[in-house]
């Protein structure tokens, strides 16, 4: 699975879960919290994305992720 596909999936779920965010404005160098996501919004984005990408990563590994780009990195490694 290529990185662009993974980023598209993550962006889609950010837009679904977080209020007032437009897909085109999402900067991967930022964190979801920068866009006003609560911790449970982030849990929802991660869960929905992993479900769609058919990957499973323990929450303990996800705790160290600080940016959207970092999340895409982790998903990319897990999907390969």
């Amino acid at each position: 699975m290529d990185r662009d596909t993974i980023f598209s999936v993550v962006k889609k779920h950010i837009v679904n879960a977080v209020d007032d965010v437009e897909e085109a404005t999402i900067d991967p160098q930022k964190s979801m919290a920068d866009y006003g996501a609560s911790s449970l919004d982030i849990v929802s984005v991660v869960s929905s994305s992993m479900r769609e990408l058919k990957i499973k990563i323990p929450r303990t590994e996800l705790k160290n992720v600080s940016t959207i780009d970092g999340l895409v990195d982790l998903f990319e490694k897990s999907a390969s």
Partner: peptide
């Protein structure tokens, strides 16, 4: 399973 999925 609890540890891997606990979100607090």
């Amino acid at each position: 399973i609890i540890e891997d999925n606990y979100t607090g």
